[in-house]
């Protein structure tokens, strides 16, 4: 063991930087969905406990004489968080573009979480429809947050279309399986170091979120893992702590894994070092 090995320079750790989406700084690296909570009150408390500065909402059909949408909007606006509408449930680029236009008018925001879904069972993104919709939405002045697979060629195309955020799935929506393909996520990170990467979907446990942040992803968008927890408010706080820890670890610079054990206690000065337990001078206890 070489004890003179130099200490790695501090300069390898990236300087802490605030997270920005399309030039807007966001307060937290946790983005939270608003669906599936046991009650609006629990949802509200979970948002507060999470520290999320951005929450997602959807658009759905309003019944005649209905006030459901307005009541929900009043409720969510009271939380003073940035709203990110989605196009959940859209199956074609055209549906998604129309939904985005409707969301922009209702919420007065050009942010749109773009979802174009290919399959009811896997809820995987239709990558072709996604790219088509993203191109059109950027032309129309939207700031697109694309829910995507972790494929590098898709990321390249979305960025070429004008997307400045990437939102790859960790694993399919609602499965809680964590990061199914960390290698591909690392590849995305390496090829696009300056585009925020938000892991959207599939996170089940705070450790999954910490893993995403540790590997350099910028943020995590959660819903089911918090909303379906036995105690969503405590789980929101747990995720917030994990995400903060994961980011701090990334900024601090993680050690590289090694196949060979290395003693942490100094070898120099080890007592009895000159006694070979297998040698002729060794004696049993």
């Amino acid at each position: 063991m070489n004890q003179t090995e130099p200490i790695p320079p501090f300069s390898r750790a990236p300087a802490p930087q605030p997270l920005t989406f399309y030039g807007e700084t966001v307060a937290s690296r946790l983005l939270l969905g608003t669906a599936l909570y046991p009650s609006p009150h629990v949802m509200s408390e979970a948002v507060k406990a999470s520290g999320a500065g951005v929450v997602t909402v959807s658009l759905r059909r309003e019944q005649a004489r209905g006030r459901t949408g307005q009541r929900f909007l009043d409720f969510i606006r009271a939380l003073s968080v940035r709203l990110l509408p989605n196009t959940a449930g859209c199956r074609t680029a055209r549906e998604a573009v129309t939904t985005a236009e409707m969301a922009r008018e209702l919420l007065d925001t050009d942010w749109i979480k773009l979802e174009v879904i290919a399959n009811d069972d896997t809820l995987q993104p239709d990558v072709f429809g996604l790219a088509e919709a993203a191109e059109e939405l950027v032309k129309r002045g939207f700031k697109v947050f694309p829910y995507m697979t972790e494929d590098l060629s898709l990321a390249d195309r979305l960025i070429a279309a004008g997307c400045r955020v990437l939102m790859p799935w960790g694993s399919p929506i609602g499965t809680g399986r964590g990061l199914a393909n960390p290698h591909a996520l690392k590849t995305l990170r390496a090829y696009h170091p300056d585009v925020p990467i938000v892991i959207d979907a599939g996170i089940g446990a705070p450790s999954h979120a910490a893993q995403a942040l540790e590997m350099g992803c910028d943020a995590v968008l959660l819903n089911t893992a918090v909303a379906r927890a036995q105690d969503p408010v405590r789980m929101a706080a747990a995720f917030a702590a994990a995400i903060e820890a994961g980011r701090s670890a990334y900024e601090a610079g993680l050690i590289q894994p090694s196949d060979r054990a290395q003693p942490s206690t100094p070898v120099a000065g080890t007592p009895f070092f000159d006694l070979d337990p297998q040698g002729p001078g060794s004696k049993p206890l």
Binding site: G33, T34, A35, L36, Y37, M43, T56, V57, S58, L59, R60, R61, E62, G66, T68, G69, Q70, F72, L73, I76, P85, N86, A88, T99, M102, L106, L107, I173, N223, T224
Partner: peptide, 10 residues
């Protein structure tokens, strides 16, 4: 015709 309003979403 579609007439939509804001709802919970993920």
């Amino acid at each position: 015709v579609e007439i939509l309003s804001v709802r919970q979403g993920g």
